[in-house]
Nucleic acid binder design. Structure first.
Lengths: 186, 186, 186, 186
DNA sequence: CATGAATGAGCTTTCATTCAT
DNA sequence: AATGAATGAAAGCTCATTCAT
């Protein structure tokens, strides 16, 4: 039942936005009465928080796995990481929508919850980029900016894919190529 | 008066978020009575929409000017454009905050308003990138993705600058360099 | 089972008050499920009403016994009655708390239940006072007021004892003395 | 408006009881919308608390005046005090009902508000009774119990008068006579 | 026009009650 | 019988909106 409720909440938030997802609409979508929600969660925040907690719980270890599974040189690993990441997001489209909804001005105000995933993602990127520095592929001075560009690019690609209804993962290799070698023709 | 109200709305949304910006708080900040808001706007959405419309009205021609003012080769123009753009955003920090707040899942739902700016920005980028293709600097096949990466990068850089409290414009040249020539050391 | 439920209800009302005694808390205290309450009582009011009915059923005959057991002259009997009554209340502290809780404006509204006890108590007092009239100890004209003063005094003494945590019965002789002979020194 | 709302709250509580007095019923009785209540009071407790505060504010100084206005010997003053008090309560019948409703198990749990009036009343009685001790009319040892009997008697008389719909003040002299000289015929 | 008190729909939350197991 | 999850009416509270002044 908790699962059904969280799924309903997720769909509701993805479709209508965090502020518009009322307990009544979540209950209706879950096919239960309002009161039932309160048999499983203390209050509205409890539902939303748990939604983020559970989804994070499903995604977080996968990100680590994807990172750990990368092998080869820096460039190959980065590409594998991005590819795996976007593939993972493909599997959690609904939640990705929620995160996009919720992550307007993160950090500018009380960010509700997707933060840890983004943080972990950035941490993974940083790990890889440092390996790239060690291999002499990229300059240490570029790590920070490059990390941010990569994170932003992932967001941009995901959002675009969401809008046009495509899967996410296809662009990963090209992103890596452009960010490493540039778009300039030679 | 409309201006005062929109300024108040902007400040309120930037500070508290779209959902928390009540008509009462906007009126209080503007130093008028709630009723007065309704003498100038049909309803709450009217205020928010007009806020976006007006700011867009101020920003749009500037974007075009910035684009038109670029000169030189493709790379130089791209850098000038980004630089000018980020400088422009620096002048509209409050509104940029509002946009960040509001631009969670644009297009996934009824996009409130920043869309056109982003669209125009993308259009400007596309114009430039096409010039790049004509000059033979970049491949036509990369235009679309590169445009999205640039747009996403701008968002990432702006958000980061907002969080750490820095001006936006400083990173523009490095972004252009990375996206054109790659971060790979040679 | 009914007994266990009523005991739980009594304890709950005594501790938290009538309004705060929920079916859930009563069930929990009785160690049964909520549904079980409804196998023995039609609804919440049914529980409360039955609580009063049962306790009255236990107290009523005792009051009669106490009255019947009184012997001697009017004054002695009155003192015995009061003493016995307060002693009886001592044995039913929890219920007395419930009655105090419930007996705000009895009769001003739908009196929940303690009424009959008070009525019987007043009836007993009246019987005694009439005996006093017959013996020529008190005037017939004073019976009514004296009855009310005695009843009120009992309430006041019980409430005070409950607040300071003392047994009830100790003050009975002094009350009788004051009401019969007055507090005036001679 | 505050007055109208408090009057409505008072009537509602007097008629239906504290727990049953909903904001909706208070609003309806006051002839305003629910929201209006919240323009004048922070929440439901705010209404109830203010009701008690205001009525206490009207009654408290009067009690003091009544006490200060008493003159003559102890007995005369006590009678004047009781008489004045009951007369005062006659003027505030509605609030007296509220107090009766609210003062079930005072002190046994969080007593909402009439407490101070009762406390002041008891303090007034104590002052008088001490004067009685000084005059040698009553014994110091009886002050405490006599005070409680008087307070309880007042409550009993008021409650009875409320139920039968009589004015309160008529019984005062007889109460004083009984408590001082006893009901015993001589 | 400006005002701000009044409004009431709508939201969150509670809890007596039901009923399939 | 006992259970306790599900129910939904009802309560408290908020806030966009209206309108008499």
């Amino acid at each position: 039942m908790t699962t059904a409720i969280l799924d309903a909440a997720e769909a509701e938030v993805a479709e209508r936005g965090l502020a518009e997802a009322s307990m009544a609409s979540i209950a209706a979508r879950a096919g239960v009465a309002v009161g039932t929600l309160y048999n499983y969660f203390p209050d509205r925040d409890g539902v939303i928080d748990e939604l983020f907690r559970v989804r994070r719980g499903a995604i977080s270890p996968r990100i680590r796995e994807i990172l750990d599974a990368t092998s080869g040189g820096f460039e190959a690993r980065l590409e594998q990481f991005l590819c795996g990441l976007l593939g993972l997001f493909d599997e959690h489209q609904a939640f990705v929508r929620v995160v996009m909804e919720a992550s307007g001005g993160d950090g500018l105000r009380g960010a509700r919850g997707p933060r840890p995933v983004m943080t972990q993602l950035k941490a993974g990127l940083e790990t890889l980029l440092k390996a790239g520095v060690d291999e002499g592929v990229i300059a240490a001075a570029d790590v920070d900016l490059l990390g941010r560009l990569l994170a932003a690019s992932i967001r941009g690609v995901v959002l675009h894919a969401l809008e046009v209804g495509q899967p996410f993962a296809t662009d990963a290799p090209r992103i890596v190529r452009i960010l490493l070698d540039g778009a300039r023709r030679r």
